[in-house]
Amino acid sequence: MRLDSTPVLAAKTVRIVPTSTRIGSHGFNARDLALVSNAIDRAICTNLSDRFQIVPPSQPADLVIHATVTDIVATNRLAAAGSIAASLGASVADLGVPIPRLPIGLGGLAIEAEALDKDGLQKAAMVWSRGANMITTKARISTVGDAYSLSSTFAADFSRMLVKGKDPFKGIPAIPSMQKLRVSLGGNPKYDACRVFGRAPGIPGMVAARFGLPPTWVDKGAVASR
């Protein structure tokens, strides 16, 4: 992590360059990769809206944000299906105890992201990677299921660094703002510039995650071609 707090805290406007990938196809479906990249952008746009004004690509901004996916570890769909079946079986049996995922075939995500000022100088950067875990990452029957879930975790960490101007991994996470809650439920984003990333799946997305359905079933992705 790198952070120049003074200019970051002084910034008022942000422009988001769509996330790119550096991994090639690697056997992943192009639509799946685009969905993960868009989920990152949408979450960053929503989180940064708490403090910054998000401007469209045609306008100058105090900070320009760009993230690059450097690696995706595929989720094993058969293992995910087994975990989902065990979890649903426990629910039907009313055991009252959460069933962890099978400790095999867990996916992961690695990203590099930076914030540049008007002169193109780097004012903040983060190299981030994380793997799914058996307890808190819900299994989804998709090769990018875990990467899709982790995209929001990365966006929260990176955005918190810019919003607070300090290490995002220290301190207690803040309570989600009303605009974040509204967007998470499928509402319109605070700024029009975020609309290009589409709406969050909302309640249908939560239901789909509960039953382990692929994110492509409920997430419509970006509303315009990149």
Score class of each variant (00 low, 15 high):
residue 8 V to E: 06
residue 14 V to Q: 04
residue 205 G to Y: 08
residue 206 M to T: 09
residue 19 T to Y: 01
residue 220 K to L: 13
residue 142 S to R: 03
residue 202 G to Q: 13
residue 79 A to Q: 15
residue 89 G to V: 01
residue 164 K to N: 15
residue 119 D to R: 13
residue 206 M to Y: 15
residue 184 S to H: 13
residue 79 A to H: 11
residue 142 S to V: 02
residue 64 V to P: 00
residue 164 K to D: 15
residue 82 G to W: 12
residue 65 I to G: 02
residue 181 L to C: 11
residue 142 S to N: 08
residue 196 V to T: 11
residue 33 L to E: 05
residue 21 T to F: 08
residue 62 D to E: 12
residue 38 N to V: 00
residue 136 T to A: 12
residue 141 I to F: 05
residue 192 D to C: 05
residue 44 I to S: 06
residue 71 D to H: 14
residue 13 T to R: 10
residue 69 V to H: 02
residue 130 R to P: 00
residue 195 R to Y: 09
residue 1 M to N: 13
residue 164 K to Q: 15
residue 51 R to F: 03
residue 34 A to R: 06
residue 199 R to K: 13
residue 139 A to N: 04
residue 175 I to S: 11
residue 92 V to R: 13
residue 37 S to M: 10
residue 192 D to Q: 15
residue 41 D to T: 02
residue 127 V to C: 04
residue 102 L to G: 09
residue 189 P to W: 05
residue 225 S to W: 10
residue 226 R to C: 09
residue 71 D to K: 06
residue 173 P to L: 06
residue 72 I to S: 00
residue 152 S to V: 03
residue 103 P to T: 10
residue 32 D to P: 04
residue 204 P to A: 08
residue 42 R to C: 07
residue 121 L to Y: 04
residue 47 N to L: 00
residue 90 A to C: 02
residue 180 K to M: 15
residue 97 V to F: 14
residue 160 R to D: 07
residue 132 A to I: 05
residue 210 R to V: 03
residue 91 S to A: 14
residue 64 V to L: 13
residue 29 N to M: 02
residue 179 Q to N: 11
residue 122 Q to T: 14
residue 71 D to N: 09
residue 67 A to D: 11
residue 7 P to W: 05
residue 171 G to M: 06
residue 191 Y to T: 00
residue 17 V to T: 14
residue 123 K to A: 07
residue 187 G to N: 08
residue 7 P to H: 07
residue 53 Q to H: 12
residue 3 L to Y: 03
residue 99 I to P: 01
residue 122 Q to P: 05
residue 225 S to P: 07
residue 83 S to I: 08
residue 160 R to Y: 01
residue 44 I to K: 03
residue 21 T to S: 14
residue 6 T to N: 11
residue 6 T to W: 10
residue 177 S to V: 07
residue 135 I to V: 15
residue 54 I to P: 02
residue 190 K to D: 05
residue 103 P to H: 12
residue 34 A to I: 01
residue 35 L to Q: 11
residue 144 V to A: 07
residue 165 G to V: 00
residue 180 K to T: 09
residue 65 I to L: 12
residue 161 M to E: 09
residue 182 R to P: 04
residue 94 D to H: 12
residue 76 N to L: 08
residue 191 Y to H: 07
residue 155 A to M: 01
residue 34 A to F: 10
residue 184 S to D: 15
residue 171 G to N: 05
residue 44 I to C: 03
residue 26 H to Y: 10
residue 31 R to S: 14
residue 131 G to T: 11
residue 185 L to Y: 13
residue 226 R to P: 12
residue 107 G to S: 11
residue 124 A to V: 03
residue 88 L to S: 05
residue 205 G to P: 08
residue 123 K to T: 09
residue 216 T to R: 13
residue 158 F to Y: 08
residue 140 R to A: 06
residue 34 A to L: 06
residue 105 G to M: 09
residue 206 M to H: 14
residue 223 V to G: 10
residue 203 I to D: 07
residue 59 Q to R: 14
residue 84 I to S: 01
residue 220 K to G: 09
residue 206 M to G: 14
residue 46 T to Q: 10
residue 27 G to Y: 06
residue 119 D to S: 15
residue 213 L to V: 06
residue 190 K to A: 07
residue 194 C to L: 09
residue 226 R to G: 12
residue 68 T to D: 15
residue 39 A to F: 01
residue 146 D to F: 04
residue 9 L to H: 05
residue 58 S to Y: 11
residue 94 D to P: 02
residue 95 L to W: 12
residue 22 R to H: 12
residue 12 K to W: 06
residue 68 T to L: 05
residue 140 R to W: 03
residue 38 N to H: 00
residue 123 K to Q: 15
